[in-house]
Nucleic acid binder design. Sequence first.
DNA 1: CTCATCTTC
Length: 759
Amino acid sequence: MASRSADFDDDSSGRVKRVKIEQNGTSDMDPKKNPYLAHQYNDVSKYASNASGDPLANFKRHATTAKQAKIAEDGPKNAFTGTNLSPRYFSILKKRRELPVYEQRQEFLDLYHKSNVLVFVGETGSGKTTQIPQFVCYDDLPQKKGKMVACTQPRRVAAMSVATRVAQEMDVVLGDEVGYSIRFEDMTSDKTFLKYMTDGMLLREAMNDPDLTKYSTIILDEAHERTLATDVLMALLKDVVLRRADLKLVIMSATLDSKKFQSYFHGAPLLAVPGRTHPVEIFYTPAPEDDYLSAALRTTLSIHDSQPEGDILVFLTGEDEIERAAAKIRAEVQEADMGPLDVYPLYGGLTPQQQQKIFNPPPKADVNGRPGRKCIISTNIAETSLTIDGIVYVVDTGFSKQKVFNPRVRYESLLVTPISQASAQQRAGRAGRTQPGKCFRLYTETSFKDDLIPQTYPEILLSNIAATVLELKKLGVEDLVHFDLMDPPAPETLMRALEELYYLKCLNIDGDLTEMGKLASEYPLDPAMAVMLISSSEFYCSNEILSICSLLSVPNIFVRPNHAKQKADEMKAFFAHDLGDHLTLLNVYHAFKSDEAQEDPKQWCHEHFLNYRALTQADNIRMQLKRIMERQEIELVSTPHTSPKYYDNIRQALVAGFFMQVAMKQSNNRPYLTVREEQKVVIHPGSTLKHEAEWVLYNEFTLTSANYIRTTTAVKPEWLIELAPEYYDIEDENFPDGDIKKALRRARNGVHRSEKGRK
DNA sequence: CTCATCTTC
C-alpha cells in the first residue's frame, strides 16, 4: 500500500523553524517609552514588591521585562488579587515554564512594546493560546486602566475551556479576573480584565462600540482558520489601531501563511515559536484511488491487522458515510477475527455525551497478544475542534464536505471537495500528538503537490455576505468596495448582497442604511429572516414567526436514524402540515411546549424522533430574539388559532422576508423553477408539503444529489406581487421572459379583477 | 428520495 514515505519533519511545508523577522513596524519610538530602559533596573529587589505589597507597583506599562514578570509570578502573593497563591498554582506554573513560548517571553515583549500590531506564529503545543494573553496582562496591566484584554476564538467550546484553564493558571475564580463571553453565556464581571470570547461576539460588540474602547489589547487567535468574523475583525481593527494609539493588536496563527498576515498589516513584526509534536511518517498511494471509501476501509483494516499498538483516526466526509463505514469495519473485524477493535463514529450531529465516547480507553490486547485499539471515524470536526490523544495512525481520504456559494444563483451548498495541503498537514499532525505516528494518504504524492490547493479558502469567499454587508453598513463602513479585507469577495458576490439588501429595504437606492436596515442589523439572523421577523407584527403573527425563525436557526429538529426511518417518518407525519414545512415546524414547537411534552421533554423528543438539543437551543434563541423585539417595541401578537386567517397570515409574513426564495411549478410534471434565476429545483423528499402547490417559498437551496429546496411552504402569487412589487415587477426589463412572467401576469390580472370585484 | 463544520446582545 505504501509506495514511499517522507519524513514529516523534513517536509518543506512541515513546520515552522524558529525565526524572528524584524520589520519596520509602525512602532512607538518615543524615547520616554523606550522599552529597553526597563533593563536598567538591575536591582531585582527594587521591584519585587513594595511597601504596599503590590507586586506590580513598579511595573511601567509597556516597559516591563520577562524577568519582572517572573518575579511577580513567583509570588507568594497573587499579583492581581493580593491573596496567597495556592500549591496548585505553583505546580501549574512549573509546567507553564516548560512550554516553548515561555522561552521567548522577552522577545515577545520587545516586539509587543515596539509595535501596535504583532503577528505571532505558534504551532500546536507551543502554549500560545493560554500563555500569550497572560504575558500581555503582566505588561499591559489592563486592570490599572479600567480596560480589558480580549482573546478571540472561532469556537465557543474553545473560549470556554481555555478561559477555565487560564483562570486556574492565574489562580483566580473563573468569571472574576479571567472570564469568557459567548452567545447565551456571559461569564465575566466588572473585575474581569482578561476575556476569552468568540470572534463573532467581538464583532457584535464592535457594532455598538466601533472603536472597541473597552479593550487595551485585542488578540485574534487561530487567525489562520480565516473565519468570516475574524476576517472582518482584522479589517476593522486595522483601521481602529490607526485611530486609537493606545490599542494593541496581536494576530495569532498556526500556519506558514504568516507572511500573508504580516504584509496585510504593513509589515508588522513577526515572532515564530516552534510547537511540540512528534514526527509523522507520510505514506501515499502509488496510483489514484477511484473509490476513497473502500480504500479507507481497506487501509484501516490493514493497519489493525499489521501495525503495532496505537489508535486509528479516519477522515471521511459525512454522517451517513461514517455510520456505514463504522458498521462495515465492525462486521469485517468480527468476521475475520482480527483482534479487539472499538469503532467510534464522530461528527457534529452527535450529542456531547456520544462524542465523549471517543475518549474511552482502547480495549485490552487479546489472549493471542494482538493489540487492542480504538478506531475513530470522523468528519473534519477532528481536524480542528476536537483533539484526541493516543492517535498514532491517521487515514486521510483527502476529501471533506465544504460550503460553496454561487452568487449568480444565490445558493450556498455542501459539496464533497478535495481538501487543501494545509488541511492534509493538519490531519497528519493528529497522529503525532503523543508519540511518533503514521499518516496514510489515499492519494498520490503528485496529487498532493499538484492538485491540492495550498490553503483552504477563507470562509468569506464561500459565503453569502448579505448579513456581513449589513453589519458593516451598521458599523459605518461606507465604501465596501475599498474595505480592506485580506481576501475581498468577488465583485459579483458583493453586488448580489447589496441588491438583496436593497430589495429587503435594508438599504436605499444609494446604498445607505434604512430604518429597516438598522433594525434588522440588530438580530443575529440573516437579513431576510430579520426582515420577516420585524414585519411579522403587521401580519398579526409575530409570536408564530418568532418561533419559526428560532427553529430555522438550529440544525434539523427531525431525527431519522438509519434503523428506524419508517417509524421516524410516521412520527413526523403526526406533526405534518399540508401547506408546508414552516407550519410543520410550528406544530412541532407548539407540541414541544405543551404541558404533556414538558413533563419529560427529553423522553417526549425521543419518542417523537425529535432532536431535543436542537429544540431547547431554538427555545434559547427565541428568548434572545424576543428581547431584541421588545427593545425595538415590536408588538408580540397572534391571530386567534381558530381564525381562518391564522395560517394565511403566517404565510404572508414568510413572503415579506423570503420573497426572493420562491419557485414555481412548471406544467407537465416538469421541475420547479426559481423565480428570477430560473434554476430547476426539486422539493426535498423530506418535505411535508402535500399537494402540488404551484408557488412555493423555500428556506434553503442545497445541491446534494439534486438541486433541492428544503423547508418549503405553499404561497400565493398575489401575495408576491402585493408584498414585493419591485422584485415581482414583470415590466422590469431584467425580468426573464418565460412561464413565470406569464403566470405572474395572470395573477396580476386576477388581483385587478378581484379588486374591481370588491368595489 | 434526505446536510461538513463553526457562529451571532
